[in-house]
């Protein structure tokens, strides 16, 4: 199996650039999909965001200088795309509709494998502002270090800690209100 560096090298060769990018897509589509899916929650939305992520990456791969790891770079594009999507849909949907729909529909979603409690957690997460949602997912589910998150999101560690703390407080309040 080729390393990321070898794949990036191959991307510069017009005769094998498509094969190299296909290998990158195969390698990273699954982890990126899961990150995106946790943020946008629905398969169709995650599919769109993932496609946009790779299309953006393909368009910008020539300018990728290798200052960060390929996975970090792709992760950053995916998060930006997901954030753009969330911001756009948040302004389009009314908040109440989103809240009422989220947990109920998630449990009936054939591609959701969690129980009622987990569906409720997803509902609580869906109420967070997009940036807090990203921070919460990265910290809570991926157990990522703040330094690593800071590298990906371009936000200071202090701001990330504050953001995570706020997100946890809001989720706690959500469960308190509904118990």
């Amino acid at each position: 199996m080729k390393s990321d560096e070898e794949l990036l090298q191959a991307l510069r060769d017009p005769s094998c650039k498509y094969d190299a990018f296909e290998e990158i897509v195969r390698r990273y589509s699954q982890p990126l999909y899961l990150q995106i899916r946790r943020l946008v929650q629905w398969h169709d939305d995650a599919d769109d965001v993932l496609q946009n992520t790779f299309l953006k990456a393909w368009g910008a791969i020539a300018s990728f200088r290798g200052e960060s790891r390929l996975s970090t770079w792709l992760y950053r594009i995916a998060l930006n795309e997901a954030l753009t999507f969330l911001t756009r849909t948040k302004t389009a949907d009314s908040l109440d509709e989103a809240v009422d729909g989220a947990a109920r529909s998630l449990q009936s979603d054939p591609y959701f494998d969690g129980d009622e409690l987990q569906a409720r957690l997803q509902e609580a997460i869906s109420l967070l502002p997009p940036k807090q949602r990203v921070v919460f997912n990265m910290k809570y589910f991926d157990e990522m270090k703040y330094e690593e998150m800071s590298d990906i999101l371009g936000t200071s560690v202090g701001a990330l800690k504050a953001s995570y703390h706020l997100a946890v407080k809001k989720i706690e309040a959500y469960f308190r209100e509904r118990n």
Binding site: Q30, L55, Y111, D113, G114
Partner: peptide, 27 residues
């Protein structure tokens, strides 16, 4: 969170069968 063990042990979200293969070739 608030004494509720909510972190899932496995992945919560699934995809349709053959999704990633299809996704790669279509992309």
């Amino acid at each position: 969170i608030h004494n509720i063990p909510v972190r899932p042990t496995g992945e919560l979200f699934k995809v349709p069968d053959g999704y990633f293969e299809r996704f790669t070739s279509e992309l």
